[in-house]
Every structure is written in C-alpha cells, then in structure tokens.
C-alpha cells in the first residue's frame, strides 16, 4: 500500500479501525468504542475531533468523546445523514476509517488548579465528556468540577449511567435539566441557561467550557456576561463542516479562521472580531 509520496504522507488516507463496543445512548445517538487495526493506541488531546468514514459512503468530522487516559477511542454518532445512517448499521467487529486527530484542544494545562464549569447542551456533552473524564482521571490537578447538562427531553438524555455515577461522587457537582417536562422526570425543567444562576457565585473564577447547538451559545454567553465572567475564561467548542480537517477545503471557514485548525475549541475572547463565530 502506498501511503507515502516523496516522504510525505497522504493526508486524506484513513486508517482502519475496528468497532469493539457499540450501544445506543438514546433513539438517535450511537456510542462506539474503536481500536486501531495496527495495534497502536490513539494519540489525541480532549477537544479534538477525527474524520470518520465508511469507504463507499463518505466521511464526516466526529468529536472524540473519550479521554486519552483510557485505551481506545470513543465516538458518538447521531443518525442524521447518509453516512451516519450506515454507521448506525455497523456491528462490533466492523471497520471504520479514521483520520486525525485534528484541531485545537481544551486548555488542559492552563486550567490546572482552577475550578471547571462545563455547560453542555444536547450532544454538546459528547466532546465535553473527553475533558470531564480527563479531569476526573487527574482529579488532584483541578479545583471544583461542575457540570451543567441541558437536554431537549427525557428520552434524549445521554450517558445516563455515567452521569448517575458522577452524581454520586462527592468531588464534583452535576446538574441536569430537560427542556420539556416528563412524568418520569423529577429534576429541573427548562433550558440549560436556567441552571446558570444556581452556580453563579462560582462562575467568575472558573474556567467555563461550553458546547451545544448553535442557538445555545448566544443565550449561554449572554448569561455568562451578566454573571461578569471574563471572556478569557470562557472556551467554546464550535461545530462547522470540517470536510478535509487539514485547512484546505474551505468549508469550515469562519471569517479568517479555519475551525478544523484554529478550532473547534476557541477562547471566547479570541472571537471578539469573528462575527461568523456565534
């Protein structure tokens, strides 16, 4: 197999990985654990993404949900298009092509010794889980850990068992809310911003990590501004169409920034002059 050309690797060639575990997290979200067929382990930092592909169907950027402190790579794929529909049909033992990891990372080093507040909307929890698990595996390195999770409805809630385990821990705080109330749900009802006042005193000195659907950022960032959180302390993890992942194809561009290279994790204060960002 020719991977090289004048000593340069083909940046578009995926590496085959095997699905070692799979389960549905809800009606639309598939969780997968992958291992490289080469036997090597994955080398990445929380916040990064990979290009996942099935030859013959296509390729798409997918957030990494696992932490590099564990073995293998975990992805969560929503059944939303032609590629993801095929991925949902894959079984344990089937292959997925992976390129990457690509993009910027959460501020693992800078956040050391500081309190962390994760604000997650819907599948925004997926990439956030990478840093959450990393921080829990390096618990002594970080201050208080607070996780705010907003989900559209009870049925859509992700990682329920894992969240229950987090809730039992004495060294972190987890708050969940759902947009629409439900008979089986005794918790908070309302969008994720309704949780922000409950941790407000905590916010100004924390590192705030935000990930969710496009509409969520506007409201979360407004609430954080009201709570007088310095913009330097806020990190957003943005979604765009990162088709090539290597800063060439142009699809993920957000003004002069290529989200696949300068992002997906941005310090909010760096986006002051990037009107296409939020």
């Amino acid at each position: 197999m020719c991977e090289c050309s004048n000593g340069n690797k083909d940046i578009y060639l995926p590496e085959l990985c095997t699905i070692t575990k799979r389960r549905m997290l809800n009606g639309t979200e598939l969780f997968m654990h992958l291992e490289k067929d080469s036997g090597e382990d994955f080398d990445y930092i929380p916040g990064q993404f990979v290009e996942a592909s099935v030859a013959g169907i296509g390729e798409a950027p997918i957030s990494i949900s696992s932490s590099p402190t564990q073995k293998g790579l975990e992805l969560v794929v929503r059944n939303v298009g032609s590629l993801t529909k095929v991925i949902h049909g894959l079984e344990v033992g089937d292959k997925l092509g992976i390129r990457g990891p690509y993009g910027s990372t959460y501020p693992l080093e800078e956040a050391k010794g500081k309190d962390l507040v994760f604000i997650c909307g819907g599948i925004g929890l997926v990439p956030q889980r990478s840093f959450i698990r990393y921080a829990l595996d390096h618990r002594a390195d970080y201050g208080d850990i607070t996780i705010l999770i907003g989900t559209k409805c009870h049925e859509m809630r992700l990682f329920r068992e894992e969240i229950a385990l987090w809730e039992e821990r004495k060294d972190m705080t987890v708050m969940e809310t759902i947009d629409e109330g439900h008979d089986c749900w005794n918790g908070n009802v309302g969008v994720v911003t309704t949780l922000i006042p409950k941790v407000e005193s905590h916010l100004p000195n924390s590192q705030i990590l935000v990930c969710g659907p496009p509409i969520m950022y506007k409201f979360v960032l407004m609430a954080l501004a009201e709570a007088e959180v310095p913009q330097e302390n806020i990190f957003v993890n943005l979604e765009r169409r990162m088709k090539c992942g290597v800063g060439k194809c142009g699809h993920c561009q957000m003004n002069e920034h290529y989200v696949c290279q300068d992002g997906p994790v941005f310090r909010y204060s760096d986006l002051a002059h990037v009107p296409e960002a939020i």
């Binding site: 020719c2 083909d10 030859a55």
Partner: peptide
C-alpha cells in the same frame, strides 16, 4: 481520485 477503496474496507492512495 484521492484513493481507491474496497467498500466498507481499506483504501489505497492514488498519487
């Protein structure tokens, strides 16, 4: 062409 592949399988770079 960037690469040739076997459907749902391995790919080989086309240079």
């Amino acid at each position: 062409a960037l690469m040739n592949f076997e459907v749902a399988g391995a790919a080989e770079s086309v240079q």
